[in-house]
Design a protein around this nucleic acid. Structure first.
Lengths: 228, 228
DNA sequence: ATTGTTTGAGACAGATATGTCTCAAGAGAT
DNA sequence: ATCTCTTGAGACATATCTGTCTCAAACAAT
């Protein structure tokens, strides 16, 4: 077997990330395999996309497992939760390319089979975020689902940064970690200017939160579904 | 004229965000217009996508203008820069849906005409980030292009949060602002656990940066292109 | 060298999308 | 009521993609 099934999947994911509408012929060519052979491995395009989705979810699940997400969420130990968060984030960098596929592609949303797996993994992740909030590791004034979406967004940024060569691969763990936990603002010196600006804009007082000082409260978000 | 060209564009963007591979027939139906009429407005699918891309870029440019991005970047005034940053971020929330299209779709990357406009707007944004770093508003240890990608990622998170109803619309300005500037970590109490965890992991000492204390240095990123 | 398996190239029909065209129905102005 | 302009419905040829098929070439194992 010149090209294994796994190699085909990897190449297909890689190519679909660049052109999500790629045809079977294009995918076959990108894989270095004839269209007939591609069809021998995957009877239909749907089946191929299904395999791709499952593989992305496998990686995601593996990363969660290696980071000890579930155990950390149950432990209520701040430093253990923080370690799991960090480990998970860093592990997801490696999966960023496929993870991106999992976030973006239509098949992930429309096929119930994948949808359910994806929801289950997201629930585990959210459980960790919620545990982190209760343990005082993550801010409790951000909706957990926002945190979840935010991590997805940051991973897309990771992928984009890698694709365009904006950030060196070796810097990404630290960059992502710092960004996620501490944001982009400079030290305390900047907070004055930022807080001032928050008061001066039309939006500064129109939002649901009254001001910056309320940011560390415990108001929580809109939806609160999912298990702890 | 029952349905204006602008209405068609708006409806098409909305529909394409849900199904990027939608056909002209589907787009026509979603717009409430016959396929023939759609073809009268846009001779080809390519032309329609081009118009969509330009509209997204128009909105982006308008948001930059309203936030005074260019002037703020030139001013070197920390609070003015911070205000422009905030205003821009909040303005982009409204554009998140179309902005997402601009970030995701293939036509945006492959059509030189759109690519150039997009690059120019991105350069302006990056100039603001760089000015913010020099003014001490944003951390100088994050590559400006990472910050740019990060904002794109956060905007995708905004769109996703709106689509799924995870965050109330009125909370988003504050949520986005806090997340961008200060990250997801809880107050000082959490920093201990987070920093501890950073030392304990395999990645903690393997990255390009030596430790957490170096995070506020001025090492800068990998690429440094673009104008100031 | 021979056998058995896998691959690539290509033909093929069916389905779908595109772009153009025609024509009848309808809305609006006078 | 009449005229004009726009729209919607649909026919049409073309192109592309899909999924299946056949057959010859390449390959590995004995």
């Amino acid at each position: 077997m010149a090209v294994s099934r796994d190699q085909i999947i990897a190449a297909a994911i890689h190519h679909l990330n660049q052109d999500p509408a790629a045809s079977m012929a294009q995918l076959a060519e990108a894989t270095g395999v004839s269209r007939a052979t591609l069809h021998r491995h995957f009877a239909s395009r749907e089946e191929l996309l299904l395999a791709l989705g499952h593989r992305a979810l496998d990686r995601w699940a593996r990363t969660q497992g290696m980071a000890g997400v579930e155990e950390a969420a149950a432990s209520r130990d701040p430093s253990r939760i923080a370690a799991a968060l960090r480990e998970m984030l860093i592990g997801l960098i490696d999966e960023a390319e496929e993870y991106n596929f999992a976030l973006t592609d239509v098949v992930m949303i429309k096929v119930p089979e994948l949808r359910e797996r994806s929801d289950a993994l997201e629930a585990k992740e959210i459980a960790l975020y919620r545990a982190a909030q209760h343990a005082g590791v993550l801010r409790a004034d951000l909706p957990v689902r926002w945190i979840s979406n935010m991590v997805c967004g940051l991973l897309l940024a990771v992928r984009e940064s890698l694709r365009r060569g904006d950030v060196a691969r070796r810097d990404l763990p630290q960059v992502l970690h710092e960004t996620f936990f501490h944001g982009a603002a400079a030290g305390d010196a900047a907070d004055g200017a930022i807080r001032d600006s928050a008061q001066g804009t039309a939006y500064g007082t129109a939002g649901g939160m009254r001001d910056g000082s309320a940011a560390h409260g415990t108001a929580g978000g809109t939806r609160d579904g999912g298990a702890a």
